[in-house]
């Protein structure tokens, strides 16, 4: 869908230019300011639209084609199989586990990032000494290349040499190594899902905080002061004034964050590869293992596109609402 819109980019401008020839003599429409604006506008748009259309649009059409074919990695000519691949995915219990985990992962991590980000942003907009240093330190998780910081976490979650466990154990919060009270972060199903989510949160919360800081600094202090004068408690002020004011930025922030989280393969792939027994399997890992590693491209494409029909209308709705609000 998106590609149709994007790919059709230049064409809405085209009728205007095509029409030029026909109308030149009678009204010289192309000389009107509107026509010139359109021409100028679509010229400015063209590079971005073409870039995206060529490098995402056309490949996307290709992956749609894969999803309805029986293509595999070594067979270039594939047969059309209709919705067979989607049907196969729906019949696969691993698929449903992956859907469940993907939803839990995305929502859970999103909520945690929102809460932590809000609290941190609130602290960081206060004036205090050393603010710059603190800000510099808290953004580091966001600036490290994800593939590498995940490996750092892998080391911290190690079943034997986990520094987290070492500390907890010395504090007597958990048992000694080898006892059942020694948490195996990536080995116990619920804990493993939590751990991969946690890494996503760790990486993402500084960014949430920055986005929310931006939102909070945009609230004129008079409004908050007015609230104070009215005797509103902090929580009331927060709910009635701050939240509605920063809602748009919160929405767009979480929209971006959600699509990035949904497509992020690396955390799960490098930490657990979906194990144990599918406890952390998410759609990207399942699609990658099925489509690329096992070579069943068609089914892999179907799995990776399975959320598309749900996400597309949701995102369109979200973005439209956002844009409307802005005027």
């Amino acid at each position: 869908m998106s590609q149709i819109a994007a790919g059709g980019g230049p064409s809405p401008g085209a009728p205007a230019t095509v029409a030029v020839g026909g109308r030149v003599r009678d009204i010289s429409w192309w000389r009107t300011p509107t026509a010139r604006r359109y021409l100028f506008g679509y010229t400015l748009l063209a590079p971005a639209v073409l870039y995206v259309a060529l490098l995402v649009g056309i490949p996307f059409v290709f992956s749609l084609y894969l999803a309805v074919s029986d293509a595999s990695v070594g067979v270039p000519v594939a047969r059309f199989v209709g919705l067979e691949n989607f049907k196969a995915a729906l019949e696969n219990s691993a698929f449903w586990t992956a859907v469940r985990n993907t939803v839990v992962f995305t929502l859970g991590a999103g909520i945690m990032k929102g809460l932590l980000g809000t609290a941190l942003a609130f602290l960081l907009i206060q004036p205090f000494k050393g603010r710059r240093v603190v800000r510099a330190l808290v953004v580091i998780p966001f600036t490290l290349p994800i593939a590498v910081s995940v490996l750092g976490w892998k080391w911290m979650f190690d079943s034997q040499f986990s520094v987290i466990n070492w500390a907890l154990s010395r504090l007597n919060l958990i048992g000694a190594y080898g006892s059942p009270e020694w948490p195996v972060w990536l080995g116990q199903p619920a804990l493993a899902l939590f751990s991969v989510m946690f890494v996503n949160v760790w990486r993402g919360f500084p960014f949430s905080a920055i986005v929310l800081m931006a939102g909070m600094t945009s609230i004129p202090p008079e409004i908050i002061d007015a609230g104070k004068v009215d005797g509103a408690t902090f929580l009331q002020r927060f709910r009635k004034i701050i939240v509605p004011m920063i809602a748009p930025i919160l929405f767009i922030g979480s929209a971006f964050d959600t699509v990035f989280t949904l497509s992020d393969l690396s955390i799960v792939y490098l930490l657990t590869n979906g194990g144990p027994d599918g406890a952390t399997e998410i759609l990207p890992t399942l699609a990658y293992n099925t489509g690329i590693k096992a070579g069943a491209l068609g089914r892999g494409a179907a799995i990776s596109l399975s959320l598309f029909p749900l996400l597309l209308p949701l995102m369109i709705l979200l973005l439209r609402t956002l844009r409307r609000r802005q005027y």
Binding site: S2, A5, A6, S63, S263, P284, A287, G291, L297, L311
Partner: peptide
């Protein structure tokens, strides 16, 4: 152009550009 020039279809185009994020990279790389 999208913000200022009041082009027809601007909104749809903008949304269309954003939607490219929904296309999964794991297949796109081929």
């Amino acid at each position: 152009a999208l913000a200022r020039l009041r082009l027809p279809f601007a909104e749809n185009l903008g949304i269309g550009i954003f939607m490219t994020y929904l296309v999964p990279g794991i297949i796109l790389f081929l």
